[in-house]
Design a protein around this nucleic acid. Structure first.
Lengths: 211, 211
DNA sequence: AAAACAGTGTTGCAATTGCAACAAAAATTA
DNA sequence: TAATTTTTGTTGCAATTGCAACACTGTTTT
């Protein structure tokens, strides 16, 4: 399933008109700035147009978890989270985000907006894509050891490359937060994986030898 | 956000017509039967109409993980999973499941099916709901200790009840598989939680004392 | 009703993991 | 380019977790 843009099949001119109709707002954020925190009270959906961001949460021990990596066409928002889950989205590069009120997408367009249905369909695809990603995340997190978490995440990253190698999309520190494990324990396990001949690493370039 | 039926806002008679147009199939399953395994090659979406089921996976060590508990209006399907993830859906009670080809929902209805747009909108709500549930699951699984996993899951179950008590929706054995932890270690931790005055239990009835 | 099975509750022990602390390397900022 | 901050890599030790084994209870099946 390829990832589609929310505007797939709608012309530039029509997009502009629709954005007005939806009262959509396009905002830009510099690297490291906070895009949203849990203080939002309107049910907004955010759609990454360009750039990358991390969805993060800190628990009461101060441990950070990276809930999700966001890239172009990723959707996020309070609509998708239960209240009280203290989550924020932090730009990891300069980025553009489109905010639309969820109700505008869900409800039948009163102004008879021409391409409303196309947009709804595109939205359906984006949400499906998000579900795929969340399922992957659940699959990785439900592995019972650090070793298995690493292997299944690495396998996922390598799966699109016949050479079985890939560039880690973030730092090892962030990887630990993404897998929800202690960083030093993870580093130790990566060393073990290398010694046991499962992987080879060169900085952030990782190659799977066997699985 | 309340959970909507996929047929919300469509009359009984129209539903019948649409099901034909979509080539949808309604199947019934007895308790403990397998609803789907990964052998499916068509991109079908399953929608639970009645009954309950578990989405499960066994890893190479024979450990079972309960990926997800399915109840009426839950959606599931290969479209939402990456290939090769060896997942099956097992009925935990007698149930009815509606299967629709994903493409039929996504694509513009050629026959100009009257309520297609309503159904697409309903689908959007179901997928949003699913994303909420998956995010909850990620939140729980990303807790670093069995104690925190238990507490955050219990908190979720108790959140709708002012008395802060709830009935565990499955056996303790299944709970361990759902949290992806060893059962005996989990039982030990539940005992600790009781001794430390966090919870009280009486069979499957659990009350949160403090959090 | 007896037998078989599934779920609960418990424990000792070994393996894994988290924590704390540190040095060195790399990247960023001044 | 010097100074500062972040990231990587490592280790000992303590705490948590998984494993294996067992008894006991409740629930199905024959």
């Amino acid at each position: 399933m390829e990832v589609k843009s929310i505007f797939e099949g709608i012309s530039e001119a029509d997009i502009e008109k629709m954005l007005k109709c939806f009262e959509a707002r396009k905002l830009t954020f510099k690297k490291d700035r906070t895009i949203v925190t849990n203080i939002i009270n309107v049910k907004l959906i955010g759609i990454m147009l360009s750039g990358t961001a991390n969805m993060e949460r800190y628990d009461y021990n101060g441990n950070r978890s990276i809930i999700e990596k966001l890239s172009p066409n990723s959707v996020f928002g309070e609509v998708f989270s239960r209240l009280g889950s203290d989550i924020s989205v932090i730009a990891t590069s300069d980025c553009e985000v489109l905010f639309i009120e969820y109700e505008h997408i869900i409800k039948k367009c009163k102004k008879g907006c021409l391409y409303h249905n196309i947009l709804t369909n595109n939205m359906l695809k984006l949400l499906s894509q998000k579900i795929v990603e969340l399922n992957e995340r659940v699959e990785i997190l439900s592995k019972r050891s650090i070793r298995d978490k690493l292997l299944s995440y690495f396998e996922l990253l390598a799966s699109s490359n016949p050479k079985r190698s890939f560039l880690l999309p973030f730092t090892y520190t962030d990887l630990a937060d993404y897998l929800s494990v202690d960083r030093s324990a993870m580093m130790r396990e990566i060393k073990n994986l290398k010694e046991d001949g499962f992987i080879q690493t060169n900085g952030k370039k990782i190659t799977i030898i066997r699985y």
